Amino acid sequence: VDYIVEYDYDAQHDDELTIRKGDIIKNVKKLEEEGWLEGELNGKRGMFPDNFVKEIK
């Protein structure tokens, strides 16, 4: 499942992704941690907030 970024987010920890509006995040999975998703961007896998992105259908 792929998501498109709607709002910029700067990573706060090493396991998070810095994302920018218009980025496409690939292979996204829901995490047990409420409010977070995990996906791949530019060869890096990491977490990001689910309210900054929208699923591409």
Results as ranks from 00 to 15, higher is better:
Asp50Val: 11
Asp23Glu: 14
His13Gln: 13
Ile19Met: 06
Asp15Gly: 11
Lys21Thr: 07
Tyr3Phe: 14
Val28Tyr: 01
Leu31Met: 14
Val5Lys: 00
Leu37Arg: 06
Glu33Leu: 14
Asp23Ile: 04
Ile25Val: 14
Asp15Val: 06
Lys54Pro: 04
Pro49Trp: 04
His13Phe: 14
Gly46Phe: 00
Asp23Met: 10
Lys57His: 15
Gly22Gln: 06
Tyr9Glu: 00
Asp10Met: 12
Pro49Asn: 15
Lys30Glu: 11
Gly22Lys: 04
Ile24Gly: 03
Val1Trp: 05
Ile25Phe: 00
Leu17His: 12
Asp50His: 09
Phe48Pro: 01
Leu31Asn: 12
Asn42Leu: 08
Tyr9Leu: 03
Met47Asp: 03
Arg20Gly: 04
Phe52Pro: 03
Glu55His: 05
Asn42Gln: 15
Asn27Thr: 10
Lys29Leu: 15
Leu17Ile: 09
Asn27Ile: 05
Glu55Met: 05
Arg45Met: 05
Asn51Trp: 06
Val5Ser: 07
Phe52Gly: 05
Ile24Lys: 08
Glu40Met: 08
Leu37Gly: 05
Asp8Gln: 04
His13Asp: 14
Asp8Thr: 04
Phe48Ala: 03
Gly39Phe: 00
Leu41Asn: 06
Asp14Arg: 10
Glu16Ile: 02
Lys30Val: 15
Glu32Gly: 13
Thr18Arg: 10
Val5Thr: 12
Thr18Lys: 06
Gly35Arg: 06
Gly35Glu: 07
Asp8Arg: 02
Val28Phe: 01
Asp2Gly: 05
Glu34Ala: 15
Phe52Ile: 13
Lys44Val: 15
Thr18Ala: 06
Asp2Trp: 08
Arg20Met: 05
Gly43Thr: 06
Glu40His: 05
Leu31Ser: 13
Glu6Gly: 05
Met47Asn: 09
Thr18Ile: 05
Leu31Pro: 14
Lys44Phe: 06
Asp10Val: 10
Glu38Arg: 05
Asn27Pro: 01
Arg20Asn: 07
Asp2Ala: 12
Glu32Gln: 15
Tyr7Ser: 09
Asp14Gly: 15
Lys44Asn: 12
Glu33Ile: 13
Glu40Phe: 06
Asp50Leu: 13
Leu41Glu: 02
Met47Trp: 10
Phe52Leu: 06
Ile25Arg: 00
Lys30Ile: 14
Phe52Asp: 05
Gly39Gln: 00
Lys57Ile: 13
Lys30Trp: 09
Met47Arg: 08
Leu31Val: 15
Leu37Val: 09
Lys57Met: 07
Lys29Glu: 15
Asp8Trp: 03
Ile19Glu: 00
Leu31Trp: 10
Glu33Ala: 08
Val5Leu: 02
Leu37Glu: 02
Asn27Met: 05
Glu34Asp: 13
Asp15Ser: 11
Asp15Arg: 10
His13Val: 14
Asp23Gln: 14
Tyr3Thr: 04
Lys29Ile: 14
Ile19Thr: 03
His13Lys: 12
Phe52Asn: 04
Asp50Thr: 10
Gly46Ile: 04
Lys57Trp: 01
Met47Phe: 12
Val28Ala: 12
Asp10Ile: 15
Glu55Asp: 04
Leu37Lys: 06
Lys26Leu: 06
Asp8Lys: 01
Lys26Asp: 03
Ala11Phe: 02
Asp50Gly: 09
Val1Arg: 08
Ala11Ser: 08
Arg45Ala: 05
Leu37Asp: 04
Asp23Gly: 04
Glu6Pro: 03
Asp15Met: 09
Glu55Gly: 06
Lys21Ile: 12
Ile19Ala: 10
Asp23Asn: 08
Glu16Lys: 03
Thr18Asn: 11
Tyr9Gln: 02
Asp10Gln: 12
Ile56Ala: 08
Glu40Ala: 10
Asn51Val: 09
Asn42Thr: 09
Glu6Thr: 09
His13Arg: 13
Glu55Leu: 07
Gly22Ile: 01
Trp36Phe: 08
Arg20Pro: 00
Ala11Ile: 02
Lys54Gln: 12
Glu32Arg: 05
Lys57Thr: 12
Val53Ile: 08
Phe48Lys: 00
Glu16Arg: 03
Asp23Phe: 01
Ile56Ser: 07
Glu33Val: 11
Arg20Gln: 11
Ile19Phe: 07
Ile4Val: 12
Val53Asn: 05
Lys29Arg: 12
Arg45Tyr: 04
Leu37Tyr: 11
Gly35Ser: 06
Lys26Asn: 10
Asn27Gln: 13
Asp8Val: 02
Tyr7Gly: 09
His13Trp: 15
Val28Ser: 06
Arg20Ala: 08
Trp36Gln: 04
Lys54Met: 08
Lys30Ala: 08
Lys30Ser: 10
Lys21Asn: 07
Asp15His: 11
Val1Met: 12
Leu37Thr: 06
Asp15Pro: 08
Glu55Thr: 07
Gln12Asp: 14
Leu17Gly: 00
Glu32Phe: 14
Tyr3Asp: 01
Glu16His: 11
Glu6His: 13
Glu55Gln: 08
Lys26Ala: 15
Met47Lys: 10
Asp2Val: 05
Gly43Arg: 06
Glu6Ser: 09
Lys30Asn: 09
Val5Gln: 01
Asp2Tyr: 10
Ala11Asp: 01
Arg45Phe: 05
Glu34Phe: 14
Trp36Pro: 02
Leu41Asp: 02
Phe48Gln: 00
Asp14Ile: 13
Met47Tyr: 12
Ala11Lys: 10
Gly39Ala: 03
Asp14Lys: 14
Lys57Ala: 14
Leu17Glu: 01
Leu31Ala: 15
Gly46Asp: 00
Lys44Met: 14
Arg45Glu: 05
Ile4Gln: 14
Asp8His: 06
Gly39Arg: 00
Lys21His: 09
Phe48His: 00
Val1Asn: 15
Asn51Asp: 06
Gly35Met: 05
Ala11Gly: 14
Thr18Gln: 09
Lys30Tyr: 11
Trp36Arg: 08
Glu40Lys: 05
Ile25Lys: 00
Lys21Val: 08
Val1Phe: 12
Ile24Thr: 11
Gln12His: 10
His13Ser: 12
Gly35Val: 03
Val28Ile: 08
Lys54Glu: 07
Tyr9Gly: 01
Val5Phe: 02
Glu32His: 12
Lys57Ser: 14
Asp10Glu: 10
Gly35Phe: 07
Glu34Asn: 14
Ile4Thr: 10
Leu37Pro: 02
Phe48Tyr: 03
Leu41Gly: 03
Ile4Glu: 13
Lys26Phe: 06
Asp10Pro: 05
Ile4Arg: 13
Asp10Tyr: 14
Lys57Phe: 03
Trp36Ser: 03
Met47Thr: 10
Val53Lys: 03
Glu32Lys: 13
Ile4Met: 11
Asp50Glu: 14
Ile56Gln: 07
Pro49Met: 09
Tyr3Gly: 04
Asp15Phe: 11
Asp10Gly: 07
Leu31Ile: 13
Ile19Gly: 04
Gly22Pro: 01
Asn42Trp: 03
Leu31Thr: 15
Leu41Gln: 03
Thr18Glu: 06
Glu34Tyr: 12
Leu37Asn: 05
Glu6Met: 10
Arg20Asp: 01
Lys44Arg: 11
Glu32Asn: 13
Asp23Val: 04
Lys21Gln: 13
Gly35Ala: 04
His13Leu: 15
Val28Arg: 01
Val5Glu: 00
Asp14Glu: 13
Asp2Lys: 08
Arg45Ser: 07
Asp8Gly: 06
Lys54Asp: 09
Lys29Ala: 14
Glu55Ser: 03
Lys29His: 14
Lys44Gly: 09
Gln12Leu: 10
Asn27Asp: 15
Thr18Gly: 03
Glu33Arg: 15
Lys29Tyr: 12
Glu6Trp: 08
Glu38Thr: 07
Asp8Asn: 10
Tyr9Trp: 10
Val53Met: 04
Tyr9Arg: 09
Val5Arg: 00
Glu40Ile: 05
Asp10Thr: 11
Met47Ile: 11
Ile19Arg: 00
Ile25Leu: 14
Ile25Glu: 00
Ile24Pro: 02
Lys26Ile: 15
Lys30Met: 08
Gly43Trp: 03
Glu34His: 12
Asp8Leu: 02
Thr18Trp: 01
Leu37Phe: 14
Lys54Val: 15
Gly22Thr: 03
Glu16Thr: 02
Pro49Phe: 09
